[in-house]
Write a protein that binds this DNA or RNA. Structure first.
Length: 473
RNA sequence: GCGGUCAUGGUGAAAUGGUUAUCACACCAGGUUGUGGUCCUGGUAGUACGGGUUCGAUCCCCGUUGGCCGCCCCA
């Protein structure tokens, strides 16, 4: 029996803590499991087989695109020096300020679970001297990210992202192609997205613009909400996507980023848009689109689920942009770069809402039913033969009665059940039972794989309807 | 981080300040020999956790944890 009490007891055994800096057990989350059963950490989840079909669709599609567009797969560490993110993401950003899983490791280093992977990709680019490879260096990754945010549907503390990053080329076509890849991937998966796009220029023109923006809003400070005042102080760009009515009103008269772009930035942005038009990628110019991370320059964009895709609280499926200063910021040679990341959980959710649910794996069409240990031994070998023949096969070795095994077979919806009893083992035969008709035949066990293959192939032959019109529903 | 809302077996639901918490589905085992789908019988399994009020709490109160929604933010 499973002892429920064990977990209660286990709670009292204080595990060696990784953070000797003593997170005092105060209020809020963070105590052990309050239940008698082990409980998931808030915002963390198990992804079970009922979702795996959709996950596979995402994984497979992404991989196909990565290969077609020659992006190289990289596996980046989940844990990095905290400093990497603190330097790159920006001081005022929420991610850095309150969402990072940051702690001191046993060797007394400040480390962080990655909240995103672009910084790691840039770090890898520098560490491995990729600037000496033919440019652009194009890489893609897929894996978990961590942000200690308040969980909600479509927002988790551990979530998975796929990212595409291209280093070393500053041409607008790089931005455009990344957007094309993103949009086409979504289409391939059956999701209709639109692209929201903006340019925030170089850090120089952004600084000039921000000064202007701040002074504009300072003049109207009285009308701003507390939130927006805080933004104005900490991260003024964010005021652009404020949802406050009064602020939105003020924004109409506010200085526009686009007017502050220098000639080169403007030209770059126009080219990106032209390429998108050429490719007939639907985009929406959103002058208020800014991204949450500081390293972006020039083009920024988001992939947003098209409206008619059902109710979803989180409709931004991904986003990205150009980050020409990032490599240099990390100490590398100035290197232009551009990339995007998409959130797998949100995509999977969108697929679910849309009713797209491919099977996780092909359902087995054959079931092996045994009677006794001699039969089990033969079964063990047969499984290998069927595997080599590429035929998935199910079993219930743990059951003793033929009846319950057939029940299982029936529930699985297999076409054929192989029945092997004492008698058959002695004779070197096996029974093939057709589950639909109930018909059975006794065959040589040595030929069973070939016979099953033939029977299954016959089933798959398309039945040509003979003349009679099929009643339409 | 702020506000709201909810929490009953694996799932979906029902009920009550007072014997043993109800039902369906699912799962397991049977309905004499080695044969599934329907049917019948039986079984496993639950009031998230901690405290308080009470003679008595699953129900009332408080706290915690977790889900969801809005804000913040973002993928």
């Amino acid at each position: 029996m499973f002892q429920k009490k064990k977990f209660v007891a286990a709670k009292k055994v204080t595990a060696p803590t990784l953070a000797p800096t003593a997170t005092k057990q105060e209020e809020g989350e963070g105590e052990g499991s309050p239940s008698k059963y082990p409980e998931l950490l808030r915002g963390f989840r198990d992804i079970l087989s009922d979702e795996q079909g959709r996950w596979n669709l995402v994984r497979d599609t992404v991989r196909k695109f990565a290969e077609a567009y020659s992006f190289d797969r990289v596996e980046l560490p989940i844990l990095e020096r905290a400093d990497l993110f603190l330097r790159t993401l920006g001081k005022g950003t929420d991610v850095v300020e309150k969402e990072m899983y940051i702690f001191t490791d046993p060797s007394n280093r400040s480390v962080a679970l990655r909240p995103e992977a672009t910084a790691s990709a840039a770090r890898a680019y520098i560490n491995h001297g990729m600037l000496d490879r033919p440019q652009p260096v194009k890489m893609w990754y897929m894996g978990p990210m961590f942000r200690h945010d308040r969980p909600q549907a479509g927002r988790y503390r551990q979530f998975n992202q796929v990212g595409f990053e291209s280093f070393g080329v500053d041409e607008a076509i790089v931005d455009a192609q990344l957007i094309v890849i993103g949009v086409q991937m979504f289409r391939e998966m059956g999701l209709d997205v639109k692209v929201e796009i903006n340019s925030i220029g170089t850090s120089e023109c952004r600084t000039a613009y921000l000064a202007e923006l701040v002074s504009y809003f300072r003049a109207h400070r009285a009308k701003l909400s507390e939130d927006d005042k805080r933004r104005l102080q900490k991260n003024p760009l964010r005021i652009l996507d404020s949802k406050e009515e009064a602020t939105r009103e003020l924004l109409k008269e506010a200085p526009q980023m686009l007017n502050w772009l220098d000639e080169k930035s403007k030209e770059h942005f126009m080219k990106v848009l032209e390429f998108l038009e050429e490719m007939e990628i639907p985009y929406v110019l959103n002058p208020y689109l800014v991204r949450g991370l500081d390293y972006y320059t020039h083009t920024v964009f988001e992939f947003v689920l098209a409206e008619d895709q059902g109710e979803l609280s989180q409709s931004a499926l991904g986003g990205g942009g150009r980050y020409d200063g990032l490599v240099e910021l990390l100490g590398g040679r100035p290197t232009p770069a551009c990339g995007f990341a998409i959130g797998i959980e949100r995509i999977v959710k969108a697929l679910e809402v849309k009713g797209i649910n491919p099977p996780e794996r092909p359902a087995p069409k054959v079931f092996f039913a045994q009677l006794g240990d001699a039969s089990r031994r033969v079964g063990l070998k047969l499984f290998e033969e069927f595997r080599k023949a590429g035929v998935p096969i199910a079993e219930a070795f743990g059951k003793n009665s033929l009846k319950s095994q057939l029940e299982n077979a029936n529930k699985l919806g297999v076409e054929l059940t192989l029945i092997l009893g004492q008698k058959e083992v002695l004779d070197g035969t096996i029974i093939i039972r057709d589950m639909e008709s109930g018909g059975q035949e006794i065959v040589d066990v040595k030929k069973v794989v070939a016979l099953v293959l033939r029977k299954l192939a016959r089933e798959e032959e398309p039945v040509i309807p003979s003349g009679s019109a099929v009643a339409s529903s």
